[in-house]
Nucleic acid binder design. Sequence first.
DNA 1: CCCAGCTTTGGAAGTGCTTCCAAAAGATGC
DNA 2: GCATCTTTTGGAAGCACTTCCAAAGCTGGG
Lengths: 367, 367
Amino acid sequence: MVPKKEIATHKLTIYDVAREANVGVGTVSRVLNNHPSVTPQTRQRVLDVAARLNYQPHTYAQRLAKRQSETISAIIPFFTNYFFIEILQGVQDRISQLGYDLVLYGVNNLDQVEGYVSRALQRGRVDGILLFSMKLPEKVILRLKETNVPVVLVDTISPYFDSISVANFDGAYAATTHLIELGRLPVGMVNAPLVSTPAVERLQGYKHALETHGVEYSDDLVKTGYSTKQDGFNREAGYEAMVDFIKMGENMPKAFFISSDIQAMGAIAALSENELRVPDDIAIVGFDDIELARHLKLTTMRQPMYQMGILAVDRVVTRMSNTNLEILHTTFSPTLIVRESCGALRNSDGTREPSPRVTPSSEGSLR
Amino acid sequence: MVPKKEIATHKLTIYDVAREANVGVGTVSRVLNNHPSVTPQTRQRVLDVAARLNYQPHTYAQRLAKRQSETISAIIPFFTNYFFIEILQGVQDRISQLGYDLVLYGVNNLDQVEGYVSRALQRGRVDGILLFSMKLPEKVILRLKETNVPVVLVDTISPYFDSISVANFDGAYAATTHLIELGRLPVGMVNAPLVSTPAVERLQGYKHALETHGVEYSDDLVKTGYSTKQDGFNREAGYEAMVDFIKMGENMPKAFFISSDIQAMGAIAALSENELRVPDDIAIVGFDDIELARHLKLTTMRQPMYQMGILAVDRVVTRMSNTNLEILHTTFSPTLIVRESCGALRNSDGTREPSPRVTPSSEGSLR
DNA sequence: CCCAGCTTTGGAAGTGCTTCCAAAAGATGC
DNA sequence: GCATCTTTTGGAAGCACTTCCAAAGCTGGG
């Protein structure tokens, strides 16, 4: 005589389900984990009971027993940054598709990174770590290496870990070339301080474009803002740099490759405050293609951020199950998105956007 | 004779530490949890050993034994939305200050909510849930209620849960009044569809302002866009609504209260495409004060988003330790931030911002 | 009908912690 | 020095699962 208590007293364990379904706990566990060796009838019986009792397995007990966390953590530089947000969308979508949890650490300065990494490294806590554009302290690299947790770097490179990034050099080259070909000379550049890899590479790409096209380079063609937050990839810095350019008066360049869209936004503000019109007086090409760029009708180099997020997750998951893979660096090529700020469209219908932003299909399963 | 093996074989448990320090596991546990009844000497000895072995407790074992997860989950409508991102900053900062984990679920449509809530509700998984501006299906409310997990609603209200929100009515009233007082009549409104509470309340506040100031209301003073994502609080919707207004020609209002900054952005784009200048021809006041608003020099109603995030976390934590608190609804009053788009500053130095954005102190401990 | 060889099942042992209880060690007072 | 309290300590039991092993149940061939 088995008494059927429906009292969902909240303490319901796998034993309760087992008793109620007249099976052993092992069987319940197998059913819940889709283990094949259970007869369909038994499986159904267990499933019914579980549903009736509204049984929910205790996640942490599972994780403890299974010795894996089904959690991936992402450590991102503070997420006021649109670029990261957009990558994060891809990350979050893929992670939840795979049934993992995303735990998020927002970092404001490099010092915090170490703390968060330690945190993430607590045994069993996470199965994998995504690290966004940070130059890691040597110390952190060591710890990461020795614990052997799968790590994927996004928007940086290190010889020790997998990485997903964008071809900064090529992008800068393409952007600059576009401007040169439009005849908007001289072409200047608003860059971020050379503390970050993207800034360095984009500068090189820019210079290379000048060189290739026989345009002379000089140091006053490149300026950087003073505001250093986000490694200098922020609106104020763009504003400041452009103000400096404007001070050059007649000698100021007629076109600019700007190392991020957000800086471009600041730069454009500076221009408009000085009665300089984009693209009529000054042509602009940005970098990133954050959502804002569309709104601003900014010509820019698109980074497939959403895709990068997806890929980062896939990569970390692959490495989880296959521990000694070769280290792999994936590089996306940015593509030029021509909108209005470069002036290329001046004679066409100004609203048209050559290649529309990739939007999710309406099934909504992908996002 | 205790052999000292330094071999960090990754499987190091509390028993290893105990053996090595010549104490019982209970003592090690107490040390690690700052339990008072351990002598300073013993504590130090344990700490030394733990450090030497580089011992990391197993998070999930702790959570299982302690019967709490030290995790708070946030379910947010897809985070392409700047408003949520800014709240999330506060949430994330406070959560990590308190040593909790943040697990993030991004939701794209209401159907997903149920799934994620179930997920979050798995016993022991989270200690509290933050739900961002979603009208919850009755079903979900029930489940949430019966499991008795602390829930805090942000940017919505429900009689069943704590909530943090903003005085939409008052904000809309203030914004509209500001425009009326500037003499920019008639004042129209770009709203979102009345499916969400904020849209409803803001409309009421707007109407009330007209009424109070003896300005007549008519239905063609309010328009809504067609794009429905984000409940209509998106750039395209703002653009569309404004295009409709522009079709009115001469009769179009001379000023607009727009129910979100992001819609204001679209609206301004529509205006500028039609050679209408802001604020010279048309005055605009937005709502939210997302970071973008500053860039756009948009006059707007500021919601203290960062603070709201902080508070939401605090509230959920309080409720965690004190289970049967009264249900509390906290309402912030939005404040008017006068920038250029309303035209109030037309004769002053255009750049000045009356009340600068609250930024973290440089200690950086708060963010 | 019996036995070998599967498949399915039960349940003990293991996962790595916390906590409770009782015992040991120290204080205190007389 | 001893009895009594109070601190401090060790370690068993418990947390809620998974997994492994052995036992039970089937299947079909002889």
